[in-house]
Amino acid sequence: MKIFLPDSEGLKTAYQLSGKTVPESVLPADPTRIVYSAAHVTADPFSASAPSGRAAIDWEATLAFRRHLDGLGLGIAEAMDTAQRGMGLDWPNALELIKRTREDLPHARVVNGCGTDHLDPADARTLDDVIHAYLEQVEAIQRVGARIILMASRALVRVAKSPEDYKKVYARVLDACDEPVVLHWLGSAFDPALRGYWGAADFTDALEIALDVIEQNKSKVDGIKISLLDKEKEILMRRRLPAGVKMYTGDDFNYPELIAGDDQGYSHALLGIFDPIAPLAASAVSRLGEGDKAGFHALLDPTVPLARLIFQAPTQYYKTGVVFLAWLNGFQKHFIMLNGAQSMRALPYFTGIFRHADACGLLRDPDLAVARMRSLLTLYGAD
């Protein structure tokens, strides 16, 4: 099967599909690595709400995708930035999403984003404002019996004057958590409003502050996910974590190497890229658990070019690529996103994803994917 795809200059050439399709396998219940896929949401295109307005969600399609992830044995990171948290998904809808996933998949491994996004950073005046915002979400999530991943706070960046302010806020919030949580260090590539998190512009200084926060509250910390897109920084921090505190890689550029690890340790996974490449993630980590490190790399390494394209700068728009692949693969009937985010990438981005996904065997139904790719090309006047 072939399709004519335009390049960046609009020149169309024939692309022959590989014919590969990844067979799905299920990650064991006790995998060698804990694996969370940060999951996207499906917008409701028939809502009267404008795409740039309050989130309108297709709940059935959104939950069906979570059943797909759970069926592969993957954990789910719910209501995170992959779900457009803070970029279309507001706190009331995030809480509804957390509740619905909890009800629909009560036995699944799920961690849920808890932040301060209902507090406009411009309205934050004091540390207590930030603490109260965090505690409101902590209480709401714990009320439904769900686990927490403590997200970084834009409001905290605005009001904090020193590293001690970060330590004070985290101590108060973690003290209110019933179970150990996963901390989230999201780099400015993913969210420019978080530049200087932990009260330091330099990574070396920020690292010391983050480690202090963990050490002072380690009974309340299951692990930390860092999304800095720098494997050396992650490895450095991983080697200095207190015993029993896990590193969850959020590095969508270097994940195979970080998950495989070295003779001094390894990272678990909490990744946005594990939404579109979920079948390969499950298969690869299963191989790793069987002692087949070469097989793990053979499956996962070829997905890195796809991931680097999806997460290319400006990185915060990677959700567009994630949802595009969900549409190509039939997990939703349309390519409409919250906040109109389907418009945030250029056509060569989509044609590149199509090629890479095909090469990795990630087009579940090539006939459907080609038909939908052609419809997108028509929309752009390029068919």
Rank of each mutant, 00 (worst) to 15 (best):
V159C: 08
A160W: 04
K161V: 10
K161Q: 13
S162C: 13
S162R: 11
P163K: 06
P163E: 10
P163Q: 10
P163F: 13
E164P: 07
D165I: 14
Y166L: 09
K168P: 03
K168L: 15
K168I: 15
V169P: 00
V169I: 12
V169C: 08
V169W: 01
A171W: 00
V173M: 01
A176L: 14
A176P: 03
C177W: 01
C177N: 02
C177Y: 02
D178K: 14
E179F: 00
E179P: 01
P180N: 01
V182A: 07
V182R: 03
W185D: 04
W185H: 06
L186C: 04
A189D: 07
F190Q: 00
F190I: 05
P192G: 05
P192C: 06
A193M: 09
A193L: 06
L194T: 00
G196Q: 09
Y197M: 07
Y197S: 06
Y197L: 09
Y197I: 03
A201T: 09
A201D: 14
A201F: 13
D202L: 13
D202I: 15
F203N: 12
F203E: 10
F203Q: 06
D205K: 13
A206C: 14
E208Y: 11
I209A: 10
L211C: 07
L211W: 05
D212P: 12
V213L: 15
V213T: 01
I214V: 08
E215T: 10
S219G: 12
K220Y: 11
V221R: 03
V221C: 14
D222G: 06
D222S: 07
I224V: 11
I224T: 00
K225M: 14
I226H: 06
I226T: 03
L228R: 01
L228K: 02
L229M: 14
